[in-house]
Design a protein around this nucleic acid. Structure first.
Lengths: 227, 227
DNA sequence: ATAAAACCTTACATCAGGTGTAAGTTCAAA
DNA sequence: TTTGAACTTACACCTGATGTAAGGTTTTAT
């Protein structure tokens, strides 16, 4: 069994090391953040299975960090803060935090919540999030609006690359690599046809986004506001 | 927007009506349990989107109820109890409860947790739970051990009927109805072959259960202890 | 022990849906 | 208005799911 990795984000060194050793003693692999310049990317570098996050931090509040994390990944976030304020709790959960706990924490309760959240996320690591939908990377099952459909493999792969590069353009080459592998000759036409097919499927599903061509560069996912 | 249905299970009439009206005032449709003979099936009759459950109840403890509910359905359960005991909390979460809150409750916090749990379950209504795995009823995507596979439609349908009748035998007729529709002539052989196929796929996936024939009656899902 | 019924297995042909190919048309920038 | 990029459509092919067929194994009753 591989240890689950928890990333501890807490600016007070004493509390930080205490938390870290407590978690390590309970079977987790722990990484801590001690550089508070660009916390979200620091966190993601650790590739954690869960993030334990304080609210009061230098530079950037835990709320903002939480929002960014949830935007860029689907890592579960447990908020652990000394501010016992219902507003904070509401705020945190709105931003997608998975648990909200207040200090001082009961060790057993914290551990229990953590293992609970981890259990809840188990197996969901293959789901990538798009605007208003989820995509299973393994089966290309698409979850939208309380229903689900299976995308044809090629369409799924294209959507996957596009989602992994949210807000950026993806070159035809990159898409081709993903779909047929980097060794294959890139067949502009086959790619084109599959792109068209994906667009048609997405439109048929009333998805809140489309694939948009960026002339001379590639393609990207764009959200459509309506609905 | 259709109101979400919450089923309140609380033996103290005063608290019960208070909870019910509070929830109704906040946009939920509420059903209450006042017959405590066979609570789990009483609850399921309501087809709730969420169950709010007390621990101290006549006849059957909330823990047992929770276990049975989770066994027979995948309805989310929020435990609301006056016993503020870490053991209870551990116990409840082990049994699959989704939240554990203690009385006296802060109204806003309870509502927040409820809406949070409901959000978490959104769209998962098409997932049915088996021993150690999940099955998407629409696509027959099977989630097990952190990975996912798509079952062929027929195998998926068979597994679905079997899961919907956990612990009971399902007749060939019922299975056939599910797979080909009740109007079609039941082709014993085709059914047999598809059953064999399902068994093989399940074995190949190391699933912790098998399809077992009950001579002269039908088939049922049986858990296999190993692994 | 043996026969009959219930249940299971395997191989093969068929069919549907995903895919690449080909031959075009439309669009947008210079 | 010209040119290359982006798109569309139809069709043929191939893979994988399905039903069919023919036979094997297990269980139960006599």
């Amino acid at each position: 069994m591989i240890l689950k990795r928890i990333c501890v984000v807490e600016d007070e060194p004493l509390v930080r090391t205490e938390l870290a050793s407590m978690l390590e003693n309970n079977g987790y692999s722990v990484g801590v953040i001690d550089n508070f310049d660009d916390v979200p990317s620091e966190i993601l570098k650790h590739e954690p299975d869960l993030v334990l996050l304080d609210i009061n931090l230098p530079n950037m509040s835990g709320f903002q960090i939480c929002r960014e994390l949830k935007n860029k990944s689907s890592v579960p976030v447990v908020i652990l803060t000394s501010r016992d304020d219902l507003k904070d709790e509401l705020n945190a959960l709105e931003l997608g935090a998975d648990e909200f706990m207040t200090k001082p924490y009961r060790k057993e309760r914290l551990l229990l919540r953590i293992s609970n959240v981890l259990k809840r996320y188990e197996g969901r690591s293959n789901l990538i999030e798009g605007p208003g939908f989820l995509l299973d990377k393994l089966t290309y099952t698409l979850y939208i609006d309380g229903t689900s459909v299976i995308l044809p493999k090629n369409q799924g792969k294209i959507l996957e690359v596009l989602l992994q590069n949210r807000d950026e353009e993806v070159s035809r080459q990159e898409i081709s690599d993903k779909v047929w592998g980097t060794s294959e000759f890139i067949d502009e036409n086959a790619l084109q046809v599959n792109l068209t097919r994906l667009k048609k499927t997405m439109a048929g599903l009333n998805m809140p986004c489309t694939v948009q061509a960026v002339r001379g560069v590639g393609y990207k996912i764009v959200e459509t506001e309506e609905r």
